[in-house]
């Protein structure tokens, strides 16, 4: 797993609630037997016209948001299926973090296992971030996992009005530890061999 420490990038605004995993990657991309090729299917229904040409109205196709590694979306992001393909699609396309007021449980877990940082911020804050990146697409955001903060460096330096952020987010300390070091669960679980065998013996499994 690719470690995650800090990330400074522009952000792509997806002002939609309940973005389900079928929207993130439709079932027809699930016929693969490897992880590859998922990036092309990301947001396929919205991103392409039925003839396969790019839909210019969809934010992912707009030139001002190319290269953004942060996705900002409405609440309940990732509802639906357990398909990890949704996370692979996002990471293969180039996203490294998703900010939303709420995530579906399975999507949230799958993200953490692939070095994609899911950041929960209050509805109001996410609304403000969406406003900002829609108005000023080159707004840069800085995500700092060690301090669990999101800041807007471009606004802090000499901007007028009230300074905004930093906003702090919660993350399970263990998951944070794994992300910072790029560790996956498998090694940890394999180390529990003794306890697993003891449990199986005691429960006469």
């Amino acid at each position: 797993m690719q470690p995650f420490t800090t990330l400074t990038s522009t952000a792509l605004p997806l002002r939609t609630e309940n973005v389900d995993t079928d929207q993130i990657i439709p079932a027809r991309y699930l016929t693969a037997v490897t992880q590859e090729g998922m990036g092309d299917g990301l947001f396929s229904w919205w991103r392409y016209a039925r003839d396969g040409s790019p839909n210019p109205d969809f934010v992912l196709n707009q030139p001002q948001y190319q290269g953004s590694e942060i996705l900002v979306a409405g609440r309940n992001f990732g509802i639906g299926s357990s398909r990890e393909h949704a996370v692979w699609a996002l990471t293969q396309y180039g996203f490294r973090a998703v900010i939303s007021p709420a995530f579906a449980d399975i999507f949230y877990n799958n993200s953490l296992k692939n070095g994609l940082l899911p950041i929960r911020l209050p509805e109001e804050t996410v609304g403000r971030l969406l406003d900002l990146v829609e108005e000023v697409p080159h707004t840069s955001m800085c995500i700092d996992l060690p301090s669990q903060t999101v800041t807007l460096p471009s606004l802090d330096s000499g901007g007028s009005g009230e300074p905004e952020g930093p906003w702090t987010f919660d993350i399970d300390p263990f998951r944070k530890h794994c992300l910072l070091r790029g560790l996956d669960d498998l090694g940890y679980l394999l180390d529990k061999e003794e306890q697993i065998s003891a449990f199986e013996a005691a429960a006469s499994y």
Partner: peptide
Amino acid sequence: FGIGTSEVGHVLATQCLM
């Protein structure tokens, strides 16, 4: 409960999940 493919691998290998 449903799990992602990484976790499918964890259960196949260790019969356990975190």
